[in-house]
Nucleic acid binder design. Sequence first.
DNA 1: AGGTCGGCCTGGCAGC
DNA 2: TGCTGCCAGGCCGACC
Length: 307
Amino acid sequence: MPELPEVETIRRQLEPDLNGRVVEVAEVLDDYFTKPEPAGSFERAVNGREIIDVGRRGKYLLFEFDDKTTMVIHLRMTGSIVLLAPDGSENPGDARIHEAGQGERHLKARFTLDDGGELRFTDPRRFGRGFVANPEDLNSYFESRLGVEPLSEDFTVDALASMTAGRTGPLKSFLLDQKGVVGVGNIYADEALFRAGLHPLSPGASMKPENHVALRDGVVEALERGLDLGGASIDDYRDARGEQGGMQNEFLVHRREGEECVNCGSEIQRIVVGGRSTYFCPSCQKRLRRRPKRRRVEGGVRAGRHH
DNA sequence: AGGTCGGCCTGGCAGC
DNA sequence: TGCTGCCAGGCCGACC
């Protein structure tokens, strides 16, 4: 499942090769890809445009054009984006891309570039979507859906504290909600909560100040580890060159039901939270039940004054 | 308004 | 072997 580290890995690979390229022919092979917009208007909006930047917002991949419009692609569950080398050039990755099922199979859209290369979107499950928007529409689209970027300096402990204040729902559900922190999906939510020592069912508002710090750090560290390893390939995920990531080999809890906790040796458990499989260590991640009470820090009650 | 749940999709796999 | 049915989950819309 492409989450922030997977999408960012793809973005970093595409950016140097796509900047300055012109889309000569855009072809949508499955109307689902542009739903609810018609494929024809999408193709017309992309045809002839020069790509001047490749960006990312949350799990959305952004191809910025010379006319300031942006092609937005979301991979959802099983989508993948690959870049095929120009015709005639020797690129060992192309064979790998076909082997990984990112060739003609499940091909939903194809963009022929002015250097002969080809950008491909494939998606066996047909959940992925693409659209083109002007800056104002894109801004309001993201404004209503997305919160803070976890790898930006805006993701402070204070910001996290105010987002979770008053929330009675489980922390796991909070992390999956893109209106709070963006880019975290089912994998990195489990990994972040384990790193923070927080139970996935603990209510958002049950956290104490030290928990806010731990969760902020847990989210950042889980995502950065995923980025370092080029993402997690559980089944479908491949990067823009058809290669797997390495994060799946270093999961601390995710998909490790019945295995030993790397920290204490307890058995990792699986529960369902908000309809999603959730993995945690029952010993390292204790459930918080009470809302925090402000602890008085009055001077006189320090230990050692009497014996 | 926050929380919860079902629907969208299809490949893969358990079970018979 | 071949069939059925269920599961995976990001996001959205409906509902409470």
